[in-house]
Write a protein that binds this DNA or RNA. Sequence first.
DNA 1: ACCTGAACACCGTTCAAGT
DNA 2: ACCTGAACACCGTTCAAGT
Lengths: 176, 176
Amino acid sequence: MREGGFHGFSFREIAADVGIKSASVHHHFPTKEDLAAAAARAYADRHMAALGDPDDPERAPADLIPLYVDLFRRALVEDRRMCLCGVLATEASALPPGVNAEARAFFERNLAWLESVVARAAPGARPRDIEAQALRIAAMLEGAMLVAHSLGDIDAFETAVLELSETLSLGSAKME
Amino acid sequence: MREGGFHGFSFREIAADVGIKSASVHHHFPTKEDLAAAAARAYADRHMAALGDPDDPERAPADLIPLYVDLFRRALVEDRRMCLCGVLATEASALPPGVNAEARAFFERNLAWLESVVARAAPGARPRDIEAQALRIAAMLEGAMLVAHSLGDIDAFETAVLELSETLSLGSAKME
DNA sequence: ACCTGAACACCGTTCAAGT
DNA sequence: ACCTGAACACCGTTCAAGT
């Protein structure tokens, strides 16, 4: 699913991997929508668990953005794959509603996490600017993964993302 | 294809639209790889033609980045769709080689165009920094489209991309 | 509760046959 | 050169039948 998207895998493949018949898979996940939504939800849960509490006073906000970048980097470098919800995002308009909802929830949870971190890093910033900065970070990471994945060039990810890890809140507080 | 990716459309659909049988489509495009590669190439050609010459002395580099941003904005707003090659990029590892090659070529052509514009805007910049800036612009636009498309919120694209149109070469010349 | 084989309408692809 | 119907192995889904 992370490689071929919603239509890039089949019930019969999964059944063969698990050692049952495809009709049996439908007993656990009645439709492909159910199965893909569950996979997206599990992916998002693991992703958010790896990020941890954005308001943890033990962790400086200046360390949390590099940690965020690193989570995406590892997904791309170690798995040599896109972000699952990034793949689903591009297919949004052709996805069953339940799958689309889980992909959207992934981004909403990511943005909420980033907004918490950016707010801590730039205490005086306006809510509007905090939201904008969170959106830019999430968009840059998904875009950097996407382009690097297409070019087959992991360095492209590093290059695109370098600015983010270096200068955390480039304009979050001082934006006009 | 822009909605469901490589597996999101069928020869039989296309045949019905055109008024022939699906076997006849194979006469023009022997395989789905041929058809999708041709579509990606045509998309990239139209895209690059809309951008025009990045070195045209009649057009200031400061005007060309907003023009670039606007091309992606219109794709998202008017068509309510992702960039075709952005969709294909996320499916890269599951794509037939010929399709993958055309998607990659789209990004290479975009990066070359952006590098020309950035080089004109920051004449003293090092090649390494010019490439990095071009990569960031392309990644930010694809990522902003992807996130906005998943959220179903076009304003998210505008917000993420605002910084790009405002301050063209934020760090292209002064990057360390 | 969990699994299965068989059937349904779909899919890309091939091919012999038509004009 | 362009089209077609028929066949192939695939796909998601359903369902009656098994344990």
